[in-house]
Nucleic acid binder design. Sequence first.
DNA 1: CTGAAAGCGCTTACAG
DNA 2: CTGAAAGCGCTTACAG
Lengths: 336, 336
Amino acid sequence: MKKISLKTIANELGVSSATVSLVLNGKDKNGRVSKELSKKILEKAAELNYIPNTLAKSLKVGKSNTIGLIIADISNIFFGTLALYIQNFAQQKGYTVIIGNTNENLNEMELVINFLSSRQVDGFIITPTEKSQDLLNKLTLNNIPLVLVDRTFPELNVNSVMINNYEISYKATEQLIKKGCKNIGVISYKQDHYHVNERKRGAIEALKNFGIFYPENIKEVRYNHLSEDISEAIDKMINNNPKIDGIFFTTNSISINGVKSLIKNNIVIQKDIQITCFDENDAFYILPYSIPFIKQPIKEIARRATDMLIEQIEDKKNEVNRIVLDSELVVNDLNN
Amino acid sequence: MKKISLKTIANELGVSSATVSLVLNGKDKNGRVSKELSKKILEKAAELNYIPNTLAKSLKVGKSNTIGLIIADISNIFFGTLALYIQNFAQQKGYTVIIGNTNENLNEMELVINFLSSRQVDGFIITPTEKSQDLLNKLTLNNIPLVLVDRTFPELNVNSVMINNYEISYKATEQLIKKGCKNIGVISYKQDHYHVNERKRGAIEALKNFGIFYPENIKEVRYNHLSEDISEAIDKMINNNPKIDGIFFTTNSISINGVKSLIKNNIVIQKDIQITCFDENDAFYILPYSIPFIKQPIKEIARRATDMLIEQIEDKKNEVNRIVLDSELVVNDLNN
DNA sequence: CTGAAAGCGCTTACAG
DNA sequence: CTGAAAGCGCTTACAG
């Protein structure tokens, strides 16, 4: 089967491909093309089942209607959901999304940026890895539309969509305190990430304000040795003296592993130890008790990031927006 | 900043862009281009940070190195994981993946096929929706490389990667019987999907062989009314007389909802009722008892599908392959 | 060993 | 109202 191009249609009808292009793109307003010819062209296109070659169009007009979405770890359910929503919103606006994965690795981030650039993406939505400031700077210097999500570098003058990490973490910790916990642990990542450190800072601030901040209760685990480090941290916490009676987990992946580790140690959650998690998890609904968690407005994050990027692409706006969305502390959601 | 093209490099060096193209693509073997010139070109390209325009290349050579991946429901963790792996394998082989979502809807499947076709994908990996035979047929008639995954239509002569749905479902049911269950329920989809019906058939066959097949124990739920229909099915099952003492859930989404529903009804799983689920779930590791589940070789499915498609794209092979992979019944995986 | 030319399938001034 | 021409950035015969 031969590919059907504009020219095929033009030839069959004995008109120029320019005219066909005009009609098929709806640019034949105010009498540019006669009604009859226009109708014939439309019919012929339908008959031949013409599908335009987007590549050629993109090349010509210098715009691909494609967004590069760079995710730190696509296997993480939080990022997966985020990607899904971004994809949906982008599609509604006529954009294709190409997803790249960095595995939290700076080199891979550079590779994936180049890869997507060669694919002529019109802009990027990125969850940046540690130490990627220079890479991001290069993009903005080249006037490439860019929005950071979930994470940011406060020193960079770049669009971002974040949640209120500090405040919500303060609140989550405060909630443990109000439940009566007197010796609260925090498990966070040993990372140079602003958003994670804001979460840690919020928790510590709450502990300090209530006079129960003990530095040794703040544990930091490595991203690449997550389950071992968490096991170790939990181990120390439950053998602590006085015993830990509450734990705040600062991320999705830490929460899951933390809960697994507690259960493995036969800790009865919400009785022996109160916990609060970051991000929702299916598993929470299956447990016989309610686990408080911080619910991020993922859909809203996706919507705002997509809108912001597309606006930037289409209007070439130069002002920088930093959006901070509220997240929610869900305390009693068991019967959902 | 001006875009750097082949021509930029050629002009700066006073050579033709053809030569630059040859060198940059490593096609300057056996003395096509002199060592010195070749070196100069490479250096200049690096200096200018040249990024080739893949769109232009694709247009010229008539191949985009892009795969269209059409998923029925990207928010389902099974498909999400599958997409992740396919993406990874494809990338290793130099292909980009563009994902489309059908929401199990035939019309959306047609739209997404057209959308991806206009993007000039070289081929498709598809989890087809119900009644999409004609759509698939059209693709194969047009010689468009195609691989079905997870699902297939046995009457169609098309590549596919499946698991042994019938056999593993038989085995899963048999296992419940051997545990002593005498009155086993099956919850499956009311769908015209071969793979799901094979699962149901396997379960029924086992029940028949052991003389405990009771038609009223086989429940079918609607995809679009999943949680209500499951609630209703579970409700009937636990109020059955004699009581149901075992349930086999035939898909991932049914399993999760089924477990939630049982817990909501204060059923003590694995004591009041034995269950077996399709697909692994994080939640299972958090429960204080072990839930047997069927573990699909997702990574292997992804690898085989990607390999098969790329082979077809590059060799234009015409033989049809139907791969059936073994899945595993995991019975005692609690201490993982 | 290197260059000039054609062409992939489009769109967009421009001319008439 | 419609067409001819140029050009987006590449690659690939072909010529020398």
